[in-house]
Write a protein that binds this DNA or RNA. Structure first.
Lengths: 205, 205
DNA sequence: TTTCTGTTGACCGATTAGGTCAATGTTATT
DNA sequence: AATAACATTGACCTAATCGGTCAACAGAAA
């Protein structure tokens, strides 16, 4: 790619990146068109090829960008010293939720890239990032203090229930609801509070 | 459309319908191509236009077909006299699960159709079918005997948790797991059993 | 004025799109 | 066997779209 891209104003860079992420998040590599990206970004198609050489170059740049961005944001909000099951989840999920709410295309793009099978890019994307969910679940269980849970509660099942529930919760929000992040988070917490009452031993409530 | 389509053998009809559902489930209306459908169905493109006149005709036929098919299958397995909260859910969800496992393209297609915004078909699809989830949740609550639930459990929240959890559960199954429906259902039931122990008053367990 | 740089948009050849249709294969009728 | 009737093909049409190129333009700097 052309390093001059980074000399553009941050806003201009973001406009272009976000437009590209949006289109690649919506369609697979083959059906995503540079015309649509340029039009969405409000720039000429020529400029895309000026900075990224080719469609493939743009795609691989975005992959690198999105992976770094997400990992950076995630680690920024993670408190690794916490051991309380629900506090870990609340922290991690509210982070993930704000990512989904603030950067849905970025998240969707990185997940889609994992399943991309177009021969032009398949071999070149490093798949480290595919199992976000799985690794998130494992890191929960490793750090959490499971002794607070009722004996008849399976920690693995509980983690899965919460993870999948959280995703469905986010997916079915309306665009308006996504604008008020604090209220959104409170609604989400109400659900978690209910679950907590159900799965914790009485003495920990 | 050409009514002669229905004189074809059931298998041939299904081959064509399934190929079309698959492609329309994968892409939106505009990016789905009749060439790909014909090739997947193993027939010539001309035949598609012979029976369905146009791409739009095929799409609207599929919408009608899928909506009727799903509603038919659903009602077939629904026992409206049951009042136990978890039995209703188990019944309804195992039905929905088997639909997702047996007819994933059909389900995906009908959900995608709800969000389709291509001007050629947008106005012509009847949106009755969009809120399957919402109406399912409401019908749960109307029929279920909520007195069995612990007093600190919100029925609405519980229904949402279970619905969203169920979707995540299905979505993260591998293709191999989907082949053994009975085992799949048992794994799912383990989750529900745990939840049931948590939310029911002791005397109902 | 000149030079340099960011940017455009018309343009290219190739591919793909929805749709048509004469020709071919297949089955039933006489 | 000959014919009529229908099912099916695939080459073909025109228009649109694709990734990619490039001469030209705008504006700031020299």
């Amino acid at each position: 790619m052309n390093e001059k891209f980074f000399t553009l104003s941050k806003e201009r860079q973001d406009t272009i990146i976000n437009a590209a992420l949006h289109v690649f998040a919506k369609y697979d590599y083959k059906k995503a068109s540079t015309d649509e990206i340029a039009s969405l970004a409000g720039i000429s198609k020529g400029l895309i090829f000026h900075y990224f050489d080719s469609k493939k170059g743009l795609y691989l740049f975005l992959y690198d960008y999105a992976a770094n961005f997400i990992m950076g944001e995630m680690s920024k909000f993670t408190d690794t010293s916490e051991t309380d099951f629900f506090k870990i989840i609340v922290n991690s999920q509210s982070c993930k939720m704000s990512m989904l709410a603030k950067h849905p295309d970025c998240m969707t793009f990185i997940v889609k890239a994992f399943y991309e099978d177009s021969p032009e890019v398949k071999s070149e994307i490093d798949t480290t990032f595919g199992d976000i969910e799985k690794s998130a679940a494992e890191s929960f269980l490793a750090r959490a203090d499971l002794s607070k849970l009722r004996d008849d509660v399976s920690p693995e099942k509980l983690v899965n229930i919460i993870l999948w529930f959280a995703e469905g919760f986010m997916r079915t929000r309306t665009p308006e609801e996504l604008t008020d992040l604090e209220k959104l988070n409170n609604t989400y917490l109400e659900y978690l509070e209910m679950l907590k009452r159900l799965v914790y031993k009485p003495e920990y409530l």
